[in-house]
């Protein structure tokens, strides 16, 4: 009981630290790829300190509630995802609940942005939801392949089944894993899929009216979502981790690969992105699922 409560407190804190670290590393690596020196790795944390003492502007109750809901959703999501043995409330519904709790964040930000009544925000939200529709096809196909292969909907069971280096990525599930990796930039909203928050086109989209602590919460949400999606990949396809350290190293490898993709690509237009996401990843993940149904 005490350990459980401790885990509930520790895992979001750990996720916050790792997420912020990843954000800093993200900026640093991107800068080095651009032949710049780059900011210090703790720069996102310094930004947070500033943002929380800056003034914030509110457009109404839903403007506040939406961003709070988005961040709360991400925090709950962390509690559901095993982090190298730490998993406080994994047994409350499994992967299906995770898929649904993932909805809190985009919906919260969409509601919050909606009340701010700025057309650029609306365009950004519209793009974000369409993009999600694009990557969700392959995401769901990959998850269903996993759930069918292991015949369970519990994430903990899936991780346990991959013990002793029986990673899903090196099993018949490899195709699903590749598809998941291809769509991950779209999930994280990094290039070439940073369409929803494109600063040069629509002035950061949903985040336009966020200033001060709102932007702070938004950034924390971004850090946590970065953590969540990468941790989910590690859990699902790389066999989780026996302890937090190995888990973190796996996450780091995946994250650095993603950052390289971010560093060198330009941005898709939304139609191009959808066309791409509905073609290659879907072909790969669909053949993965068909393979699984055939060999079972």
């Amino acid at each position: 009981m005490v350990i459980n409560i401790l885990e509930i407190i520790i895992s979001p804190v750990l996720a916050f630290i790792i997420g912020i670290f990843f954000m800093g590393l993200f900026r640093k690596i991107t800068a080095r790829l651009h032949w710049r020196y780059g900011p210090p790795v703790i720069q996102p944390f310094l930004d947070l300190i500033k943002l929380f003492h800056q003034q914030g502007f509110s457009h109404g109750p839903v403007f506040d509630l939406g961003i709070i809901m988005a961040l709360a959703g991400s925090i709950v999501l962390i509690l559901f995802i095993p982090f190298g043995g730490i998993c406080p409330i994994s047994n409350s519904g499994g992967l299906l609940v995770i898929i649904y709790i993932m909805l809190f964040a985009p919906l919260g930000i969409a509601l919050s942005g909606g009340e701010a009544a700025n057309p650029n925000i609306s365009i950004g939200i519209s793009r974000k939801l369409i993009l999600a529709l694009g990557y969700e096809v392959s995401f769901l196909l990959a998850l269903l392949a996993l759930m069918t292969y292991y015949n369970t909907i519990s994430l903990v069971d899936i991780v346990e089944a991959q013990d002793n280096y029986k990673w899903a990525l090196f099993s018949p599930l490899a195709l699903s894993g590749i598809a998941y990796f291809i769509i991950m930039p779209a999930m994280l909203g990094i290039r070439p899929f940073d369409i929803a928050g494109a600063p040069q086109e629509i002035s950061t989209g949903p985040a336009i009216e966020y200033g001060g602590k709102y932007l702070g919460l938004f950034n924390i949400w971004h850090a946590l979502s970065m953590f969540v999606y990468i941790a989910l990949f590690v859990d699902l396809f790389l066999g989780g981790g026996s302890n937090p350290l190995t888990f973190f190293i796996k996450m780091l490898v995946v994250f650095i690969l993603l950052t390289f993709i971010h560093g060198v690509f330009p941005r898709f237009r939304i139609e191009q992105a959808i066309k791409y996401l509905w073609k290659w990843p879907v072909i790969i993940s669909l053949s993965g699922l068909i393979l699984i149904t055939v060999i079972r």
């Binding site: 710049r36 780059g38 900011p39 502007f57 950061t204 336009i208 009216e209 200033g211």
Partner: peptide
């Protein structure tokens, strides 16, 4: 960006 100065898109 070395000094934390980055351009942002909106005044908020």
């Amino acid at each position: 960006e070395r000094f934390g100065v980055i351009p942002v898109a909106t005044p908020r």
